[in-house]
Design a protein around this nucleic acid. Sequence first.
DNA 1: TTGTAGGCGTTATCAC
DNA 2: GTGATAACGCCTACAA
Lengths: 340, 340
Amino acid sequence: MGSATIKDVAKHAGVSATTVSHVINKSRFVSPGTKARVVEAMRELNYQPNAVARSLRMKTSNTIGLIISDISNPFFTDLVRGVEDVANSKGKNLILCNTDEKTEKEETYLRILRQKQVDGIIMAPTGGPLEFLRQLVEVGFPMVFIDRLPDGIQVPTVTVNNEKASCDAVRHLTSLGHVRIGVVTGMTGISSTVERMKGYERALSENGIEMDERLIVEGWSRVEGGYDAAMRLLSLKPRPTAIFATNNLMTIGVMRALRDCGLGCPEDISVVGFDDFAWASAFHPYLTTVAQPVYELGATAANLLFKRMKARRISGNSARVVLEARLIVRESTAVPPSET
Amino acid sequence: MGSATIKDVAKHAGVSATTVSHVINKSRFVSPGTKARVVEAMRELNYQPNAVARSLRMKTSNTIGLIISDISNPFFTDLVRGVEDVANSKGKNLILCNTDEKTEKEETYLRILRQKQVDGIIMAPTGGPLEFLRQLVEVGFPMVFIDRLPDGIQVPTVTVNNEKASCDAVRHLTSLGHVRIGVVTGMTGISSTVERMKGYERALSENGIEMDERLIVEGWSRVEGGYDAAMRLLSLKPRPTAIFATNNLMTIGVMRALRDCGLGCPEDISVVGFDDFAWASAFHPYLTTVAQPVYELGATAANLLFKRMKARRISGNSARVVLEARLIVRESTAVPPSET
DNA sequence: TTGTAGGCGTTATCAC
DNA sequence: GTGATAACGCCTACAA
C-alpha cells in the first residue's frame, strides 16, 4: 500500500495541495481553522512527506557523503562521530563509504554520491590519481579533505600538525637517552606519512643523531605491516632501543611482535605510538602516545563543509585548518635504555 | 551551472530522452550507431544521471538506514563495516545514525529515514516505547533488529547467544576456584543485559554458589559506569576475587578502577570481559574475553534485510538468527584466587 | 486567505 | 529501432 501523498491529505482536508504544503513548511499564513483540518488529515492518513520528491524539487538532499578508508579503524570511528554530530545538528544525514584505500572504490563512491545529489562530501583521499575528483573540485562541488592532503588539488583540508607532533614524540625518546630509534612508517604516497617522517628526521638531526636507513621500515599503516616491520627492526644487531610507530594499527602490530619475541616494554625496548587509545591508561604498558583530537577533526571538517555549502561559488579559497596533536607521556617509556 | 540532464544529452546526440535512458540502463536494443552518439554526448557533457529523480520514479532509493547507539563504541564499529560491505555488494548505500540510546533521537531518525524512502532499516533498538516504530513494522516496512530484541514487536532479529556465552565465562571463573564473583551489568531494559545476567546466575547455581546481591552492580554499559561499579565491588569486604564485566566499555572502566586502586590483574583479582578487543593479546593483562562475531552480526543482518526487501509482503515471519559468541581464554585469568 | 498550473529529471507505456 | 507523453510527489510563482 503506497503511503499517502500530499494530494491525499489535501483531498481529505478539503483544501488544495498548496495549502497542505504551506502548513507543513510554515511558509505562509494559513487560517487556524484550515490548518487544524490539515493537521488532522495528516494524522489520520499517517502522512509522511516524501523527501525524495522534495529533494528533486528543492535541489538539496540534506545529505552529505563521508568517504574514509575503513570505519573499523578506531581513528576514523571518533572522526565519523564528530562529522555525524555536526551534520545532525544542521539537519543533514550522513552516507558512509569505506574505500579500503582503493582508488577504484573511491571513484565509484564519489560518482554515486554525486548522482545522489549529496550537498557535500568529506573525504580522506587515498592519494591515487583521480580525474573525476579533480572535475568535481573544479565545478565547485563542496568538498573538504581530512587527515591527509590531496596531491596538487586545491581544496579545504583539515589535518593535525603531524610533523611537530612526531618530532615531539621522538624528542621524548632522545631525551630519555635513546639513540637507535626505529620507526615504522605508514603507507607511502599519503601526506601524513611524509610529514610524520619529517618530524622523526628533524628530531634526530636536532640531537645530532645520524640517520640509519635500516631503522626505517614500512608498516603500510596496518596491524600486520606494523608486526612485520617490528620483526625486521628487532632482528637488527644491535637492535634499536626504542620504536616509534606512526599510527594506531601499526602500534598494535609492534606490540604483538614484542610479545612474540618475548621482549618486555619498557624493560627491553621503549615504544611510542602515534594515535592514542581510550584504554591506553588501563592496560600495560601504559604507552606514551601522540593523541590526535579525532572527534574535533571530524567536527571541524563538517563545519568547514557547511560553510562551503552556503557560499557555493566562493571557490578558489582553499583553507587548510591544522589542529594540534599532542604528546601524552605515560610511565612506560620513562625508562632509560638498558644499553647504549 | 546546473549539471546536464538527460534531455541535454538527448538534444546533443540528436535522439530522444527515451533512447538515452535505454542506453544508460541497457533496457532495450539501441542500434550501435545511435548508441555511440549517445555515449559520446554523455562524455562531452560530463553527464551524471540524477539519482534523486530516478528514485522518485522508481520508488527505490538504493539506500538503507542503520541506527545504532554510537559509532564510537568499538562493538558497533565492526558491525557497521559488516553492514556496509554487504550493502555495497548489492549496490546500496548506508545512512548512519547515532541515537546515544535516546528514544527521542531514535524516533526522529526513523521518521527521517522513512521520509527519505530508504529501502530498509537495520537498528539496535533503545528499548524505549515507540509507537512510530510499531507502525512501521505493521505496514511491513523492511526492518531488522540487531544485538538486542525489541520489546514485544515481531521483527527479524540477529543476536548472539548471550546467555550461553556469559555462562561459559562465569564457569571459567568458577573452574579456577572463584566463588565470590562480582558482575558489572549493562543498561537495564535491554535484552542483552537480561540474557547475560541469566548466564551468570545459571553458572553460579550450577556450581552451588549462592547468589549475593551485593556482587551485582549496574555499570550502565559505559566506561564510567564500569569504573564506578568496580569501585563499589572493590570496596566490599571481603572483596570479590573475580569480576565479570558484561561489555567492552565497562571492561575498560573496570580495568581503570583496578589501576586506581593499585590492584593487579590477575594477581589480586581476575577479570573476564564480554566483547573482545583487537589488541587484547598484545597488552597486559591478556584478558580472557567473550568474543562476539561482530562483523558477521552486521553482515547477517544486512543479508536478512535484503531478503525481506525482496519479499515485501511476506510479513508475519519474524526469524531470529542467533550467532555464536565464544570464550577466548588467555593467560591472565588462569590464576587461582589468592584467598577463598 | 486560498487555489491553479508548471516543472524538478527520470522511467514506463504506448505508438509508429 | 525510436519517440511522445504521462507520471512519480513536491514546491512555488502567479492569480484570485
